[in-house]
Amino acid sequence: MDNVQRMTQAYSQAPWRKQVQIIGIFLLALVTTAIVAGIYLNITARTTTMGREIQEMQILVYGYHSLFTTPQSGNMPVEELRQDIANLQAQLAYLTSYEVMDARARSLGFRPTEPDEMVYLEIEGYVAPQPVTLAPPPSPVVVSAAGVSDEFNEPLFSWLADQIEQTARLFGEVKP
């Protein structure tokens, strides 16, 4: 009797149970989609922001500054930083130009040396100053075979065998 009642109840409840199941599956799909979409949007937004930042770090994208803003060196694009560096080098060169240095030396009481005032000393191992080197000379890049790690040369099985052997040796050395 009880079984009959239970089956009757289950039968009568079956339609809405089925609906709940369908709704549940639908909501699950919806939530999953929303999570995936959310992650996608988040990543996309971050990628976009980074891309824009990279662009702005490279060049002044829209080309011009307003008179009402002063660019800070912290957010200058690379192009303008290079201009700034070149400008600073020129300013430094002005401050150390021959005329300026000559005037400073004279104001400190120095004067040009006459040949007969020069005293020459022979110093063992003295190396005369060499003209400026602003960058290394071009030389071919030679990758020495000896410099490449064994892992990149030996076959996989050989490496595996070696690792096993090393591990075994390690355990073999363990003293009680």
Partner: peptide
Amino acid sequence: WGSLLAGNTL
């Protein structure tokens, strides 16, 4: 000797 003879300014 590395003294700047021609450079660039803003």
